[in-house]
Design a binder for these strands. Structure first.
Length: 462
RNA sequence: GCGGGUGUCGUAUAGCGGUUAUUAUCCCAGUUUUCCAAACUGGUGAUUGGAGUUCGACUCUCCGCACCCGCACCA
């Protein structure tokens, strides 16, 4: 069997209605993807599994859904408006891009990162003759340009002359920091505790690429766990382990395809930072989730910029402090791509290739497909309809499939990861086996006869 | 954003300055079919968009757009 390529998975995703290129009929929009009928089911199942693990199965966690639009000062506090807008200029000869502020500093000219584009441009122009391209030594640069990852909007502006733009979130987790005090004040939450949120983020990625891996609009599932200062280490280790276990046990991802990798260069405030990486086809190991030991940076920044005291008072000891934060942050698109990549298998069956998505049943977009063995036998069709209606009421994501012959239906369901196919045949209608149907297992391709009244219980148990 | 490459039905592909634009598969409808992509019939469906050259452009030129590779970016 040849090596699986990401192209195979992208092709399947499009062909079967998991993921479509964004705005496709207009030629496509870079960095945007739409989830189709099966994709949205898978995505919702992933979110539900994540929410279950971080909210329902925990009594020290609280859910949240914060507004997308936030006070622009939020992004000043987080560092996104300054720290992530780098002034760059390009060498006209070899196209190497230089950081203008860093090159200026090398020749002793101080360039503050808070300077405007115009100021930097002026400084750059004044010193142009002293600057050389570090690669080809030419001294011919294009104009200075600021690259800022934040997406601006004109929210609340009707004149087009707004002094300060309102930004779309560059990361979803800021909403958690903004509501830390609210959650403490309105719930029984006592440190240590966590807040979980799944939210949208938007980034002006210079070069979105690699399918769902780097997009301009993304959804992030974040947890922020608030602990007492300096009581971060043990909990951080537990979180790392728990998150790894979640991928293998809940999502069913192969352990050998996952690894934890420590950041080599930490941002100045971070105590520690690790990524969970998955070994994607074609791309190789790349980050799906970041786990960060962030100290008190985030709440301190927001306290400073907002003027609101965000410290916590321990109800037992009356100790007052800014809690430290342990963060997990995973892109839902990356999670979905991980699950698709890991579930995708090409197998040989009776000399033919079969493509099968070995998704955990609870993640599968279609739980069960129901077929009459033959579609030109009204008595089979009627009985199958009955079973279909019953199961659909129970599970929702149930598919009716009477197209082509039975083998073809099995293959079609294999390809979208449907764990069980139920077939109503002549034995369902008469003889000792009356009232039973065959249930065919996606992974083993084996089937067994099950009584109709036991179907729901049987499918629930699996 | 820069440099290079690519762009034909949903998918995978063939071909040509003048074609009814090929084939397979998928999909839809029907016939058939007593369990792993059988067969038959019919059907929908494509030259990435826009200009230009030309009597005529899917084919040549230019400008967009998207995707791929490299650089850069990646809280």
């Amino acid at each position: 069997m040849s090596e699986v390529k990401m192209d195979d998975i992208i092709s399947l995703a499009k062909r079967r209605g998991f993921v479509y290129p964004g705005s496709e009929i207009y030629g496509g929009q870079a960095g945007m993807y739409d989830y189709g009928p099966l994709g949205v089911e898978l995505l919702n199942n992933l979110k539900a599994a994540w929410w279950k693990a971080h909210v329902y199965e925990r009594d020290d966690f609280y859910g949240l859904d914060s507004a997308i639009f936030k006070d622009p000062r939020v992004w000043d506090a987080s560092g996104h408006t300054s720290g992530f807008s780098d002034p760059l200029a390009e060498c006209k000869k070899c196209n190497t891009r230089i950081r203008v502020d860093k090159e200026l500093e090398k020749i002793g000219v101080t360039a503050d990162e808070k300077m405007s584009e115009a100021e930097l441009e002026r400084l750059f122009d004044e010193n142009r003759d002293k600057l050389k391209c570090p690669k080809c030594s030419a001294a011919d640069f294009g104009p200075v340009r600021m690259f800022n990852l934040l997406v601006k909007t004109n929210m609340g502006d009707f004149t087009g002359e707004m002094a300060e733009p309102v930004y779309l979130p560059g990361e979803a987790c800021q909403g958690i920091y903004l509501n830390f005090k609210n959650v403490v004040d309105t719930t029984p939450a006592k440190i240590p505790f966590g807040i979980a949120q799944i939210g949208k983020a938007f980034r002006n990625e210079i070069s979105p690429r690699n399918f769902l891996f780097r997009t301009r609009e993304l959804e992030q599932a974040d947890t922020q766990y608030f602990v007492k200062p300096h009581e971060n280490k043990d909990e951080y280790e537990r979180i790392k382990q728990r998150r790894m276990d979640w991928y293998t046990q809940v999502l069913g991802v192969r352990p050998e395809k996952l690894r934890l990798k420590q950041h080599e260069n930490l941002v100045f405030y971070a105590a520690d930072a690790w990524d969970i990486e998955y070994d994607f086809p074609t791309y190789g190991f790349d980050e799906i989730e970041g786990i960060h030991d962030r100290t008190d940076y985030d709440l301190t920044q927001h306290a400073k910029f907002s003027g609101t005291d965000l410290s916590y008072v321990d109800p037992m000891t009356q100790e007052k402090y800014i809690p430290w934060i342990l963060e997990t942050s995973v892109g839902m698109g990356r999670m979905l791509l991980t699950v698709l990549s890991d579930a995708y298998h090409e197998e040989e069956i009776n000399g033919d290739k079969r493509v099968v998505l070995k998704l955990k049943p609870e993640l599968a977009p279609v739980k069960v497909a129901v077929s009459p063995l033959l579609k030109n036998k009204p008595e089979l069709v009627a009985k199958a309809r009955e079973v279909y209606t019953m199961l659909k009421k129970e599970f929702g994501a149930v598919m009716w499939d009477d197209n082509g012959n039975i083998g073809k239906r099995y293959r079609r369901q294999d390809e979208i990861g449907t764990p069980y196919c139920i077939v109503i045949d002549f034995d369902t209608l008469e003889g000792d086996t009356a009232g039973t149907v065959t249930v065919r297992n996606r992974d083993t391709t084996q089937q067994e006869r099950v009584k109709i009244e036991e179907l729901v219980g049987r499918l629930r148990a699996s």
